[in-house]
Design a protein around this nucleic acid. Structure first.
Lengths: 341, 341
DNA sequence: CCTGTTGACGATAACGTTGTCATCGAGGGG
DNA sequence: CCCCTCGATGACAACGTTATCGTCAACAGG
């Protein structure tokens, strides 16, 4: 058994009935005055407001949601708020939904599918009006279950062509392409990629190749580094790339953290950036412009993404036309000193 | 009128009654089998479980909370998740409460008192089992209102001796003191402080003076900078301090962001750090160890703080003895190159 | 055999609100 | 002057669950 629910409120709650008696009207009129004021005369509304103030009445949303069959809860699934981008996105959602009367219920998911399944089931008792995910839902079973729920579902962050319902994401391919074109304009000749080569990484790499192809270039060396990586990995990567591709003059890292490591290591080795080797990253860190050698990277607006998702969802909840159910949040190239800004 | 509540569920919901019929028991037995399994025979429990699976029953927490008078909702007030420290703290709370059966409801507060008052009222309809705040509650009216609620209240982040109910915070004075002692050990002679001189800043400064006093030192120059500040402010501050206190050889900034600016400006001016001027900050940024000149600062464990707060609250909700209702989360000095680490 | 206790389960009612339909008077068109 | 619409309000019942009390059988102790 769970621990929840040992809190009991003391005393008898103030009910609509009490307010109604105080105001000299019927309970249903109190209800209307509070939730649909236009249907009540100005004068009556005022009497009710006074009675509410006097009694200290606070509506009970459990009763109200039960009876009306409406829920003001939107459930937000986040794998980890310590990831600053996710936190920003959630804040964006919150801001977009401010004043809409909806409330965000945090649901923590680990990265694992099994957990996500559990959590979805833990949230369903609240009959949420909608659910949002930072990151696409992986498990097919969960996707099917969510689809059948008949409520708006928002997937954020990643792109996929067949969302459960709505999606606002970044195009990883677009980011890679922008960087490829930039490398072409800069005239780099021996080009390496380092980072993940699965999922998001694969998309970034594919886009990168495409962008380079526009100026007849190719990726001459790929150093795959799967999973979570650190600055130290980036430092080692630089050596491996220089060994694997002698004369390499430009490296695109799939993740800023690796690029930061490479920048530090290059300075350590006395290499000129970008003279000897140009280095670029992909936007997962906010401080890279404050490095000694500011890093060229792909800027990812995680707050803006969350805001856009929240706005789309809000429209949807108002039954307004939302047009496309898939939106790509803008990303752009930040050219800085590390590629010769 | 708010927008919320336009979602209506289609079809007839599966109720305990349906499950009961399927399992050949009474509704109340189904309820018990699900929420208090020990009171039901193993065999009956199994029949109920099968019936639940077959019917796809999901409990309706609105009905259950309404009838039982218990809420599984804990309301968390955050001013801004884009502040990484707050996000970490919230994640800590979430982790501490994982598996407890409680759910976190996000409540966004601006920094203003008026807003906080509004939001508290927006949350009360959920009859939360507890409320948590990142940051102490400023408004006396809100403090009184919360006190009367009779539910656990947790204030996080700042320290104050008279919390509404429970508090887990950092001692800003302690951080200042540690830095003052460090400056003493380093032998700095002409010492400046720059940053806020109100609230948290005042405490940091007071602690700093105290730490310096241990080695007979004093703060020779104070440059007050109230409000939110940026790297640029830090850059300008360095010049002002050098003008205001010629020969200044060490500066303690009340906020890392200012210290970062000063470090960048010092490098720009060709000053040696810490040879010409030592610089230290106060832990609000995570990347300062990755600067070209890593920054000495006060480390603040925001995740650990949230975790501790969540754990204390969890105990409290189980009616366990919690001992002190006030806890100080550990902070410590991170000595790095910018003060001659 | 009687009384008391315990364990498993059920019948009834109530939690506080709002959807639905009904009522009633005011005003407008024929 | 009648019929109809419209605005404002009320009576009643129902949303889905669980607290409370009650029933009934099994069993122990005297």
């Amino acid at each position: 058994m769970t621990e929840a629910g040992t809190q009991k409120r003391a005393g008898r709650a103030v009910r609509v009935e009490d307010v109604a008696r105080e105001a000299g009207v019927s309970p249903i009129t109190v209800s209307r005055a509070l939730s649909d004021p236009e249907k009540v005369r100005e004068e009556t509304r005022k009497k009710v407001a006074e009675a509410v103030a006097k009694t200290g009445y606070v509506v009970n949303r459990f009763a109200s949601s039960l009876r009306s069959g409406r829920s003001s809860i939107i459930s937000v699934f986040v794998s980890n708020l310590q990831n600053q981008h996710f936190a920003n996105a959630v804040q964006g959602c919150a801001d977009a939904l401010e004043g809409s009367g909806y409330h965000l219920l945090m649901a923590q998911t680990g990265y694992s599918d099994r957990l996500q399944q559990d959590v979805v089931e833990r949230v369903l008792p609240f009959r949420p009006a909608a659910v949002m995910f930072t990151g696409v839902v992986q498990s097919e079973r969960t996707r099917a279950q969510l689809g059948k729920l008949g409520i708006p579902v928002m997937e954020m962050w990643d792109y996929r062509p067949d969302p459960i319902d709505m999606l606002v994401g970044f195009s990883n391919a677009e980011g890679g392409r922008l960087m490829g074109e930039h490398f072409g304009r800069r005239g780099f000749r021996r080009i390496a990629y380092c980072g993940r080569t699965e999922d998001r990484g694969a998309q970034r790499l594919a886009g990168f190749r495409e962008g380079l192809a526009a100026s007849g270039r190719t990726v001459d060396f790929v150093l795959p580094l799967e999973g979570r990586r650190t600055v130290t990995d980036g430092m080692q990567a630089l050596e491996q790339i220089r060994a694997g591709l002698p004369g390499c003059d430009a490296i695109f890292f799939g993740t800023d953290i690796l690029a930061v490591g490479a920048v530090l290591e290059a300075r350590h080795l006395g290499l000129k950036i970008p003279g000897d080797v140009a280095i670029a990253g992909y936007g997962d860190l906010e401080f890279v412009k404050q490095l000694h050698t500011p890093l060229t990277t792909i800027y990812v607006g995680s707050y803006a993404l969350g805001l856009a998702a929240g706005q789309m969802l809000r429209k949807r909840l108002r039954h307004e036309e939302i047009g496309e159910r898939i939106a790509l949040s803008p990303i752009h190239l930040e050219v800085r000193a590390s590629t010769g800004g």
